[in-house]
């Protein structure tokens, strides 16, 4: 199977922040969710993948092309990108945006763009600055999908949108991956958006990639138990992968095989897993 994204030992340092030795792959046809708190390095990763930033070390290949290769500029014709804001010039109308992008992308599809505008009921003669945030993001997504992309890269594209709009947008992602040659990299700090959508989950924490693996395998590996102080003390310290305490008991993350028979274990949700893992890190 081909890989849509291949990242090896990618490193980038800024004053006060380092994205450290990032290695992951996104197989073709899959959706990878990049999770992490604000400032964890998600946007830096995406900028490196778009070659808007130059890595200090390591390599990144997108759709089979090294991002440092001068040919990568042309490969971007097959990548649809949506950032946390739409970033279109304020005075442009949706129709003008379409005309500009028609000349920018080699495979621009007027009909597709038109169809998305209709589907989202976006007025095509209204200035971009007069759109609501939801409309702006829908326009950005319509633009990203209208040049026959094989890979979608989304950086916090659903942040700050109401649940109804998010739902409409997530629908588009499912439609997009109906084609097995289409892949998505989506970063978000809203984990519930990614819980069902993603095939793979990568968790960035303070510039380090804590894991990147198949979501189901990940959720199968861990268990959550709710228990009291006594039972907690009985557990070996090395078994505890994450913990959240309150005066009345604690919530502990364990590997499924480490759960003692005396305790009832629950399957974690992705959100709970991530929270407990990052708390475990804080406890160390």
């Amino acid at each position: 199977m081909k890989n849509a994204i291949e990242v090896r030992n990618l490193t980038k340092s800024f004053p006060g922040f380092t994205l450290n030795d990032l290695t992951f792959t996104l197989p073709e046809g899959a959706i990878l969710g990049l999770i992490g708190e604000n400032g964890a390095g998600k946007s830096t990763t995406i900028k490196l993948l778009l070659h808007a930033l130059e890595a200090d070390n390591g390599s990144a290949k997108v759709l089979g092309c090294d991002v440092k290769d001068p040919a990568y500029s042309a490969v971007k014709n097959r990548i649809g990108v949506v950032l946390d804001e739409a970033y279109f010039p304020e005075v442009l109308t949706a129709r003008q945006v379409g005309k500009v992008l028609r000349h920018a992308y080699s495979d621009w599809q007027d009909a597709d763009y038109e169809a998305y505008l209709n589907r989202f009921s976006l007025p095509d003669d209204k200035m971009f600055r007069d759109y609501s945030r939801g409309m702006k993001m829908k326009l950005a997504i319509a633009a990203a999908l209208s040049h026959k992309p094989q890979l979608l890269i989304l950086d916090e594209a659903t942040a700050g949108l109401d649940p109804l709009v998010r739902d409409e947008i997530v629908d588009l992602f499912y439609e997009f991956t109906r084609d097995p040659s289409h892949s998505i990299l989506i970063s978000s700090h809203i984990i519930s958006d990614l819980e069902k959508l993603c095939d793979y989950v990568a968790f960035l924490h303070k510039g380090n990639l804590l894991f990147c693996e198949e979501k189901d395998a990940l959720l199968d590996r861990y268990c959550v138990v709710h228990t009291d102080e006594a039972a907690l003390r009985a557990l070996p310290n090395s078994a505890i992968k994450g913990i959240r305490k309150n005066p009345y008991g604690s919530e502990i993350l364990l590997y499924a095989e480490d759960v003692p028979a005396s305790l009832t274990a629950e399957r974690p949700t992705l959100e709970n897993l991530i929270l407990l893992l990052s708390k475990g890190d804080a406890a160390k």
Partner: peptide, 11 residues
Amino acid sequence: ANWNSLAVSMP
């Protein structure tokens, strides 16, 4: 408009 952040993602 912060256009360049978008433009670098384009060809």
